[in-house]
Design a protein around this nucleic acid. Sequence first.
DNA 1: CTCAGTTATAGTCATAGTGACTTTAACTCG
DNA 2: CGAGTTAAAGTCACTATGACTATAACTGAG
Lengths: 253, 253
Amino acid sequence: MDQWQPLTVPVQANPVGNVEERRLAAPGLAISTVIFALKPSETSGRPTLWLPLVRRIREPFKGQWALPGGPLRHDESLPEAASRNLLDTTGLAPRYLEQLYAFGGLHRSPAQRVVSIVYWALVQPEEAELPGEEENVRWFRADKVTDLAFDHQEIVDYALWRLRNKMEYASIAFHFLGEYFTLAQLREVYEAVLDKPLDPANFRRHVTSAVGIEPSDRYLQGGKHRPPRLYRYTGPAPSSTPRTAPNTARNPS
Amino acid sequence: MDQWQPLTVPVQANPVGNVEERRLAAPGLAISTVIFALKPSETSGRPTLWLPLVRRIREPFKGQWALPGGPLRHDESLPEAASRNLLDTTGLAPRYLEQLYAFGGLHRSPAQRVVSIVYWALVQPEEAELPGEEENVRWFRADKVTDLAFDHQEIVDYALWRLRNKMEYASIAFHFLGEYFTLAQLREVYEAVLDKPLDPANFRRHVTSAVGIEPSDRYLQGGKHRPPRLYRYTGPAPSSTPRTAPNTARNPS
DNA sequence: CTCAGTTATAGTCATAGTGACTTTAACTCG
DNA sequence: CGAGTTAAAGTCACTATGACTATAACTGAG
């Protein structure tokens, strides 16, 4: 680092350089984010995974859907850039944000080469209401997205895999919920993400024996059955920098 | 991605720009690698974790030790850049290479801002012989490194954590060894990385019940005791792209 | 040749975690 | 007040694992 000469040269505003220009241009650097939220399914009404995409308004891939993203500004860190860009393009402010992977294949973008540092985020349903469900920003079911611009399909698939994987060993599920939640609601989050039913009794045993989730003295009223106790998360707040803590653990290839 | 105007502008060959230059310059992009190998300890002779560092020959941090790294060339992918740069700076060709994290803090480098995409690698002892143990490339014990340039200490700590973490659930330990190895050798790898003794009998039970490591019909001769059977890894070869396979799993924050 | 030394390899036992399932408690509504 | 529904607790068999013991197979000293 800093040992070589930076090869940065000017590129056109409209990046449709020829081969020679492409050879010389330094790779562009972009920050993108995969945002997950739980919303009721149109059919069953049960919570399912959704994610917001933005429609491309210029070439390449004009008209296709893509992940929200943008450039890295000089005065913001990587997670700051992800958050800010999220707010700009979708109006969302995530509760949970973590780096996913850096994608740097040679032909991800037709014109200038672009290296994308991708984050993934979880938002609560309340904040998941898009300010204006505009023509150019829309929610899609996570398992139904298709025909994305660039290599964004691959990125979404990887983010989904990471979410499911991490859900099984880390305490992140409650980021989809509000401060107080019932164990049934928490279980529905797991069932939606992992896409399989879980035994309520075993789920209770598992989550109550884990640290970080504590029972409150409040109960959820209004149902037509025994009112369930409300729980809250009392563990450490997540940090968006890599950490050495033993509770936040385990990685992919 | 590709939705904004690339802000890339020329920067000086010697990056000591003033504030205004820094404001305008696009962040530099670097690829660095943390390389691990097992070498006998100077004192006990037991295998321990080592990593190679290169001495900086220019400012900033001139004279201090740093991770091997360099720029991303226009015609190479991220893992190719990591491998190539490794070969250039240390002469090593890793058997295992995986992306670690993208570090992009604002003040990692004094002059131009630099975003580093860092890989981590495992090499075998045979290939871990540095071509010339030059003045400017040297092996250090992984738990003894200190006073590194930039934020490289933090990066090494994180890579160490990731190695130890991944060692506990993924089959990567054999990448430190040759094709044929005894279970005692494999156990020594675990003991060196995790820095704790393991029960030989339990270790055997665990590793023989796992998939991917198969007994051969060969035995290691030459010891002054019962010759141990040689094993080899027969599982899938690692890919350096993110994967969705269930056997390569689990991630940090 | 025999036996002590050393490591390889197999087996035992108690305990913790977990999936499948049953039972009891507490509420609403007709 | 009883049927319906979900909450919450308990049971049981099976598996994984840490600690430990026992036996097998080699080398080298005497």
